[in-house]
Design a protein around this nucleic acid. Structure first.
Ligand SMILES: [Mn+2]
Ligand SMILES: [Mn+2]
Ligand SMILES: [Zn+2]
Ligand SMILES: [Zn+2]
Lengths: 133, 133
DNA sequence: TATCAAAGGATAAAATTTATCTTTAAAATA
DNA sequence: TATTTTAAAGATAAATTTTATCCTTTGATA
């Protein structure tokens, strides 16, 4: 169990018990929806407000401490910010997994065939995970 | 202005005036949010219900007549279903543009370094469009 | 330890999406 | 073409999701 006090402060976020617990939960579970995160936090803080979850998720996103992952046909999940990576989603069980793929070639190609100045790539691959196969 | 009567029927959707107008709007504008689509439809049908927009968007998605495009830090947009392609989004003005890039190599790579069976790839590239540069 | 801005909890309000019910109309059929 | 049937439209209520407000509590700083 990592202590996220310093990491939160680096992002200009006060290290409250609720935020430390959210950080831990994301560290342990990887990717979580608002709903699931709230359920989990309720076990630790029996009177935590859903508004606290939303306020923290929004603030943590603004300060780049966490990031949202939008998934086709499913609710968004959130994760601790880390080096750029793509995602694998299981259409059967909803499991979300990280996968690191170099997208530079793709980005270069897009730059050439479009007039955009591109700086970010967001890739979500859908399929069936090992367990569900 | 294309007539979408047959196309709608092929997808088991009755060709109502509202649906033909939605189809036209998507054909002309490419990608539209619920909100913008509703505003536009109100100009054509001064008493169209927002529920009609939602019901049609949902049904058209179920029948694969249209598809949702989830965009980072923005509301979803919808488009007529066409051959698989990726998207460019302008961080400045929100413009969404199609771009066709072959993702097979990427998918193969992901297959090798993961235990997933992958069948779809969803790529959204963010940057700045020509106009906003 | 005292101070203060920020965060938490409770809850209201707003925004978004879905459900229900009645009327209307598209499409199939006679 | 007229009739029949079934699905869709419109109106609106309800549910769900997200944000705002207000007061209390607490983390960070000195
Ligand atoms: Mn991830
Ligand atoms: Mn498109
Ligand atoms: Zn699975
Ligand atoms: Zn632009």
């Amino acid at each position: 169990m990592i202590n996220y006090t310093d990491e939160l402060r680096k992002h200009n976020l006060k290290a409250t018990p609720q935020r430390l617990a959210i950080s831990d939960a994301l560290y342990i579970n990887g990717h979580m929806s608002i709903e699931v995160l709230y359920e989990l936090m309720l076990k630790k803080f029996n009177s935590i407000s859903l508004a606290t979850i939303y306020k923290n998720i929004n603030l943590m996103m603004e300060n780049s401490f966490i990031q949202e992952v939008k998934i086709p046909n499913a609710k968004s999940v959130y994760e601790l910010t880390k080096t750029a990576h793509s995602h694998l989603v299981c259409d059967s069980c909803g499991e979300v997994e990280d996968v690191t793929i170099d997208l530079d070639a793709i980005i270069d190609e897009a730059k050439q065939i479009s007039s955009f100045k591109i700086d970010k790539a967001n890739l979500v691959l859908s399929g069936v995970c090992k367990n569900c196969q």
